[in-house]
């Protein structure tokens, strides 16, 4: 309305010289649209097109010649490995996110209590795992986990314990990939929680102290409620990223032993790229979407309902 009114006034002041195209360009909404157009194109090109193409692929047969409807999905449902991958993806994502959040929270408290002039150094050191490309750091971990020559087993043997087949045994392999993911992802939580901690006014803690709250009650009744939104957002974000993790699992175990550590992304890669059945791989990767969507809806609704409580 306002835009129209403004352009009307302009029209009156500079009589009918302008073409229709020009007038349209003058409107604020058109300008806004034009300025966001590059982003809209990018999203269309890099997000929407691949997504729909994946849906299309999932409905084709192995040679991508024929439309087969949902038979790729029914095929997957009847395979035990698929359900194992679903289970492993969930266990992997849940455990990793919980431990990343817990460790991030605890370490953020430690760093928060470090005197300000030394804090930067600690923040920098603790961020290192997150800065190294995980494919590379996982290689280092791979050496650490090596059954015969690794540092871990060397220590275990010297402590009089028997060496562990870190990547050879199904349970230890699952433990190992989660461990590396936690090591890689915890600094992200640390930084987010540290920022959140700094935004809680000290006087709230002092007020709580005077109200009779002990250390634990101050965390429970002041820190956690004040950080609830940031916790929800980081957990959502990290769940998405962890669920879709590829590099750590691929480099460390490549899904083995006997497919026991496969997550959606690595199994989709195995079937689609390495196995040459791209439609089947696409169907596997599509499964991540509904699970993550449900998770995102719940978390975001919770954040919206509470709104921003920091007054």
């Amino acid at each position: 309305m306002v835009d129209a009114a403004i352009s009307d006034v302009r029209e009156l002041s500079t009589p009918a010289k302008r073409t229709g195209m020009r007038r349209m360009l003058q409107r604020k909404s058109s300008i806004a649209f034009l300025m966001t157009l590059p982003l809209i194109l990018l999203i269309g090109l890099l997000v929407l097109y691949p997504a729909f193409y994946a849906v299309h692929l999932a409905t084709l047969n192995k040679s991508m010649q024929r439309f087969v409807g949902l038979s790729n999905f029914t095929f997957l449902f009847n395979r035990e490995t698929f359900w194992m991958v679903v289970r492993q993806s969930c266990i992997f994502a849940l455990t990793a996110v919980i431990f990343k959040a817990l460790i991030g929270f605890v370490v953020a408290h430690f760093v928060h209590n470090v005197p300000a002039n030394k804090q930067r150094r600690w923040r920098g050191i603790l961020l290192i795992p997150w800065v190294i490309p995980p494919a590379m750091s996982t290689l280092a971990w791979l050496w650490l986990f090596d059954p015969s020559y690794s540092a871990f087993n060397w220590i275990l043997v010297h402590l009089g314990l028997s060496p562990v087949a870190w990547t050879g045994d199904a349970y230890w392999a699952r433990f190992s990939v989660i461990l590396i993911n936690v090591w890689f992802g915890a600094p992200f939580f640390l930084i987010m929680y540290l920022a959140a901690l700094k935004s809680v006014p000290d006087q709230l803690y002092e007020a709580a102290q005077i109200d009779g709250a002990n250390w634990w009650q101050r965390i429970w009744f002041v820190t956690l409620p004040m950080m609830r939104n940031i916790i929800a957002i980081t957990v959502l974000f990290s769940t998405i990223v962890t669920f879709a993790n590829f590099d750590i699992v691929q480099v460390l175990t490549a899904g083995g032993p006997i497919d026991k550590t496969h997550v959606f992304a690595t199994w989709a890669f195995r079937l689609g790229i390495q196995g040459g059945d791209i439609p089947l791989g696409a169907s596997v990767s599509l499964f991540m979407f509904p699970i993550l969507a449900v998770c995102a809806i719940f978390i975001l609704r919770d954040i919206r309902r509470r709104g921003n409580e920091a007054s």
Binding site: P201, Q203, L204, E206, A207, A208, P225, M226, E309
Partner: peptide
Amino acid sequence: FQNYALYPH
């Protein structure tokens, strides 16, 4: 307190 320090949540 000067800025009241009420618990916002």
